[in-house]
Design a protein around this nucleic acid. Structure first.
Length: 832
RNA sequence: GCGGAUGUGGCGGAAUUGGCAGACGCGCACGGUUCAGGUCCGUGUGAAAGCAAUUUCAUGCAGGUUCAACUCCUGUCAUCCGCACCA
């Protein structure tokens, strides 16, 4: 150990040693309790950013501390290697996506290794690995066989710029999440996964099995699934044998239906408008709606539009004919694409009725006498008793819902039902750089999966990347060469679409448990040993996509008997963003995301280069609690660097002067006792704090210990005790700043690794002092402090408090009304 | 509009079965070390008043409960995030 701390040298040295000794490699060990610590694998863009560093630093503290606690820790890393940027690189620079991706992965491997994270590199996986693709395709085929995967003509979100289909989740305010282009609608035959069939289980498990997840994420998923209870109800079309089916949550208001509204895309519309006077206007409206992007629709401020289509439906409860309209406020993708208009009790219907001069019939009597139900200014949404509804009059609206649903069901007009906002997951992508969907179309047999022995279906390499038109795969001459139906052997065609990359990341946690297996996706015994993921750590941006898809995947695999558990992630930690504020021209401090345009990007590489990985890690863990936003500050980084130096010097100087030798935790005098007290308190607190992910307070208590040690050192120091103290200090610090701790560990006479040590225990009796300081208050204000025996009685404490000189003086001439004594904490004297 | 979260010094943040508000760090100031700068070490640092002991005010705002409230209750404002014509 050199006198001067040189982070670069120290870190390279220990990274090499860890690698040589294969320290981070793990295998299943049934005699040990396992701990699966997982960070979200990165997209190999080529550069690691602060968000990555934060994510992995948190993961590493968890991994290293759990290891010290005696767990067998699985801590893997890999790459989400398929995706658009690689293909864009091909289009823009002519680089093959595969080459581009592999170069980036190599670069990121190197960068990751400079962070000193305890990854088991032997388990590295990447989704464009042919072996990974093989088992991805195999899983797809199981899904197909189970009926979870199916092909369907779908109205899809189409990005005209990326020339690809986007999942609903990838559309943000009507724009492509990636490039910002306005998203259009297009009909395409697409592979879907039946996520809706799992909606109820996905929802129910949020309450029963995701107790270790943050509420915010659970709520987001609940909203995303969007369950509504209600009824499907039919309304006959006047002069037709067709019936319109609607979904409603408010069956109790059915007597108040005065019109029907259909989505412009509703399948009945064509037949209803054909040859009618409204035809031209209706067609124009439908065309306008299909052109309009979501962004335009919302920009119009929810002003209702629509066209009467010269048809009527019959409200069978009242026997009345009600006009049918088409309108874009009814969405084809939710419910049945048709809505019964109840203007009195739905604000949107109310707005629509006002605009088109339609009748408004109240069916709920407002309890508030100031509201006249026959002259509503807005829809009445509050509670009340049913009116204008025949036999249901007088019922509470809540009771009327099931009563009305039952009646309608008896009449054969409808039934109780449940609707979800969540839709099936469209997984086809018209892109090159993804995992090919292993399906073959045969004119006789239909869609047939590729034979297992032919997997993986590889991506063709004789393709052109033009950036326009269809998927590059369609330009390949070899891809369809000699393809025959696996079923009947006739010439057939391969599916040219690739899978959404979210499929790859939906089971990678299982593959990590058995990453090199070429006989199966993962060995069940191994997966059962390691799963579930005990701690999953990543960004909040994955709350509804990745985290829902991965849950869905695991659920299907569970049903297929491939996994032991229905849910993959026991505990979830969503880390906050790393931002960098700046002072604007008015002198105000503005918080801002790191972005190229603002020029406030700080890369982990430059910080590691300048201060070392330990400093970078320490700052990132110390500056804020993990789930909160973290404001990057160079001054703060220097503070962490200073602290590491301070510890380093403390150890170095001590060893210089006293050498390595006997340790003792025995306290001989008051100064010793004080140090021992602080030491044990710190060991206790750091352990507890790490378990709560309160890394910031864990580090601050270590700093307090170091401050105390510096003070102690200047007094009458007991080297044996101090040695013990240094030993404990290094151990509790090692999960945070592992390199420098290894260095000091070696310097203090150890030839093993601090990585392999056990977490230190603490002495409870050293923390329990004989006397305890208590605060004495008069009327709630602190006036004095007293030292009392730790087991003193309430009476004794009170007596001692009253006897204190200062208190006596202050109470002179006053009348003591009441004394509250909380042993160990406080004495409050109420006096007048 | 609906849902979730957060509001504490100049800054990041501590403190919740109600019990000393501001731990720890940054920044700042002063002192020591140094030829000097940096480093390092030490002291101080919520605001206001006072030479001082001390006093008053202070956890977004307004109330309430309590001997005692950052913590519990009611209302309100602000910011951030997610969803958003979901019938």
């Amino acid at each position: 150990m050199e006198r001067r701390y040189n982070a670069g040298t120290v870190e390279k040295k220990w990274q090499k040693i860890w690698e040589e000794r294969n320290s981070f490699h793990v295998t299943e060990d049934p005699n040990k309790k396992k701990f699966y610590d997982l960070v979200m694998y990165p997209y190999p863009s080529g550069k690691l950013h602060m968000g990555h560093l934060r994510n992995y630093a948190i993961g590493d503290v968890v991994a290293r501390s759990k290891k010290m606690e005696g767990y067998n820790v699985l801590h893997p890393i890999g790459y989400d290697a398929f995706g658009l940027p690689a293909e864009n690189a091909a289009i823009e620079h002519g680089v093959e996506p595969s080459k581009w991706t592999h170069e980036n992965m190599d670069e990121m491997d190197a960068q990751l290794k400079t962070m000193g994270i305890s990854y088991d590199w032997d388990r590295k996986i990447y989704s464009c690995d042919p072996l990974y693709m093989k088992w991805m395709q195999w899983i797809f085929i199981q899904f197909f066989k189970k009926g979870v995967a199916y092909k369907k003509d779908t109205d899809v979100n189409w990005c005209p710029s990326c020339k690809t289909v986007l999942a609903n989740e990838q559309v943000w305010q009507g724009e492509c999440e990636r490039c910002g282009s306005v998203v259009e609608k297009k009909k395409l035959s697409q592979w879907n996964f039946k996520t809706t069939a799992y909606a109820e289980r996905l929802l129910a498990n949020i309450d029963t099995k995701l107790g270790g997840w943050p509420d915010s994420v659970r709520t987001m998923q609940r909203n995303w699934i969007g369950k509504s209870k209600g009824a499907n109800m039919t309304f006959p079309i006047d002069g037709s044998d067709k019936v319109i089916e609607v979904f409603t949550t408010r069956a109790d208001t059915t007597y108040g239906v005065t019109f029907m509204v259909l989505s412009p895309e509703h399948p009945f519309v064509e037949e209803l408008i054909k040859g009618k006077p409204c035809e031209e206007e209706a067609r124009k409206y439908i065309r306008e709606c299909s052109m309009k992007s979501e962004i335009e629709r919302t920009a119009e401020g929810k002003e209702k539009t629509g066209v009467f289509i010269d048809s009527y439906a019959i409200n069978r409860l009242t026997g009345k004919k009600v006009p049918i309209f088409i309108t874009d406020y009814v969405l084809m993708g939710y419910g049945t694409g048709a809505v019964m208009g109840v203007p009195a009790h739905d604000q949107r219907d109310f707005d629509f009725a006002k605009k088109f001069g339609l009748e408004i019939i109240p069916t709920i009597q407002p309890e508030d006498p100031s509201i006249d139900p026959n002259d509503l200014k807005e829809a009445f949404l509050a509670e009340g008793k049913v009116i204008n509804s025949g036999q249901f009059n007088g019922m509470d609206w809540r009771d009327a819902i099931p009563a009305m649903e039952k009646y309608i069901e008896e009449q054969g007009w409808g039934h109780h039902t449940i609707t979800y906002k969540m839709r099936d997951w469209i997984i086809s992508r018209q892109r090159y750089w993804g995992c090919p969907i292993p399906m073959i179309w045969c004119d006789d047999c239909g869609w047939v999966p590729e034979k297992e022995e032919n997997l993986p279906v590889m991506l063709p390499t004789d393709v052109e990347f033009t950036g326009t038109g269809d998927s590059p795969i369609t330009t390949s001459k070899t891809f369809q060469e000699g393809v025959t139906c696996p079923c009947c052997g006739k010439p057939a065609r391969r599916e040219v679409d690739t899978m959404d990359t979210f499929l790859d990341s939906s089971w990678y946690m299982l593959r990590y448990t058995d990453p090199q297996n070429d006989k199966e996706a993962f060995n069940k015994e191994k997966a059962d040993y390691w799963m579930n993921v005990d701690q999953y750590i990543g960004g909040i941006e994955h709350a509804t996509m990745h985290l829902l898809y991965a849950r869905f995947f695991q659920m299907v695999l569970y049903d297929l008997g491939l996994t032991k558990y229905e849910e993959p992630f026991e505990n979830l930690l969503t880390q906050g963003m790393v931002i960098k504020g700046y002072t604007d021209k008015n002198g105000n401090y503005v918080k801002a995301k790191m972005s190229k345009s603002l020029g406030n990007v700080v890369s982990p590489a430059e910080i590691i280069d300048k201060y070392g990985a330990d400093t970078a890690r320490m700052f990132i863990l110390f500056a804020a609690p993990p789930e909160r936003e973290l404001d990057w500050s160079e001054a703060g980084v220097e503070g962490s660097y200073r602290f590491i130096n301070r510890v380093y010097r403390l150890v170095y100087d001590f060893v210089e002067e006293y050498g390595n030798g006997e340790m003792s935790e025995e306290a001989k005098n008051d100064a010793d006792k004080k140090l021992v007290y602080r030491l044990n308190l710190t060991v206790k607190k750091v352990g507890e704090d790490i378990r709560k992910f309160a890394f910031n307070t864990a580090i601050s208590s270590i700093m307090e210990l170091v401050n105390e040690m510096y003070k102690y050192k200047d007094g009458e120091m007991n080297p044996e005790l101090f040695r013990f103290c240094i030993n404990r200090l290094m151990l509790v610090l090692s999960p945070f700043v592992p390199h420098v701790c290894e260095e000091m560990w070696q310097h203090t006479g150890h030839d093993d690794l601090i990585y392999d040590q056990s977490w230190p225990s603490y002495d409870e009796s050293a923390i329990t002092l004989d006397t305890v300081q208590m605060v004495v208050q008069i009327n709630g204000k602190v006036k004095d402090r007293i030292e009392v025996a730790k087991d003193a009685s309430k009476e004794a404490i009170e007596e001692q408090a009253m006897a204190a000189d200062k208190i006596k003086e202050l109470l002179e001439g006053k009348n003591v009304v009441k004394v509250i004594t909380v042993p160990g904490k406080i004495v409050n004297i109420v006096a007048k």
